[in-house]
Amino acid sequence: MDRPPRREVEVTGFANSDLSRGRANGVAVPDVDIVIQVRPDSVASKLPSKGVAEPRMLQKWALRICADRLVSGGFKFRRSGFRGNEPKMTLLVPSELKIFDTAVPIDISVNAVTPLHSAALISECSNLNPQSKELILLIRRWAKDRGICHAPKGHLSPYVWSLLVVYYLQVAQKEPLLPPVAEFQAIKDLLLAGCGKTAQPWRGKASELTAAELLKGFMQFYNSFPWKSEAVCVLKGTQGPMPLSLPIHIIEHEDGPKSTECGPNIEDPFAPKKNLGSGMTWWSWLRMKEELARAHTLLEQDTSLSTLLAPWSPEGPEEASRN
């Protein structure tokens, strides 16, 4: 019997929010991730110059080929992001293609794992505590509307904002609303696979707080968070000193190395030695603190959600040029 041909490419899409939402200051922060999974040896065999190539080089080459094909099919190129650990490109899907009702920005990547990790994290949080998913999506929307989740400009990515929500729900309540990520059911099952053991489900209590109260608590928690002495570590899910294995991120002020301060240190639960706050700049660091203070003040005054989520716009030409 003939075997079916082996698939060389698998494509997975992840939608993270309402695609009809606007964007702060016209910055296209995609809510759709398209991940193209392809065997590295299959990519290497198609390189114009044969020889040994680094995995990152293969990713970039395959990504350029995929983007070229999509652009020739009607998609519009917006920008490339090759500086991060996972190369990606942002394309715009115009409404003329009739895929979406409006033009929608998307990120495409090859063999990336962050979109999968983000989707798995949200799914697992939803299973453990439905309130956590609601708060994650609300914070991600707030960060997008207020212009502080555009990673290429030094902001924390939507995935990192999700981790901040998880950590807040782990440590900021009298009783944790989420367990350590190491105790998440899916991760425990993977660790116990092949051992003949079954992971016991986490038994947490539902919060009596409303979504509005959790949102208010989140802003208060991070508005006064001791970034100089603590890191966000959802893997352990407990407050304490920074792990010695986590590289500390020091931010240089506008005057260069003469003035520095400790920036946000956020552990990647899937790669604990990786600091997800290391891409933050002095300007983006100020913007984050500014927005946390604004949100905290508005929520203390019981301001409406529409005011809190009002799209950010720069106040002057200097800020506009940064976006």
Rank of each mutant, 00 (worst) to 15 (best):
E124G: 04
E124I: 07
E124D: 10
C125W: 01
N129S: 08
P130R: 01
S132P: 08
S132F: 02
K133D: 15
E134A: 14
L138Q: 03
I139V: 15
I139E: 01
I139C: 00
R140S: 03
R140P: 05
R141E: 06
A143F: 02
D145M: 14
G147P: 11
C149S: 15
C149E: 10
A151G: 06
P152E: 12
P152N: 03
K153I: 07
G154P: 02
G154K: 00
H155D: 15
H155A: 10
L156K: 09
S157D: 06
S157W: 05
P158S: 11
Y159P: 01
V160L: 15
W161F: 07
S162M: 08
L163Q: 08
L164A: 10
V165Q: 01
V165T: 12
Y167C: 14
L169E: 01
Q170T: 06
Q170P: 03
V171I: 05
V171H: 10
A172V: 00
K174H: 08
P176L: 05
P176I: 04
L177G: 00
L177S: 01
A186I: 06
I187E: 13
I187L: 14
D189C: 11
L190N: 02
L190P: 02
L191I: 07
L192I: 08
G194M: 09
G194V: 13
C195R: 09
C195P: 00
G196V: 12
W202L: 00
G204D: 01
K205C: 11
E208Q: 08
T210A: 15
T210P: 03
A212H: 14
L215V: 09
M219C: 11
F221E: 08
Y222R: 06
Y222E: 01
S224I: 09
S224L: 08
W227T: 05
K228T: 09
A231R: 07
G237Y: 10
G237I: 06
T238P: 00
G240K: 15
P243F: 14
I250R: 05
I250H: 07
H253M: 11
G256H: 03
P257L: 08
K258Q: 11
K258V: 09
T260L: 07
C262D: 02
C262F: 06
P264N: 04
P264C: 06
P264V: 05
N265T: 11
N265W: 05
N265E: 02
I266C: 12
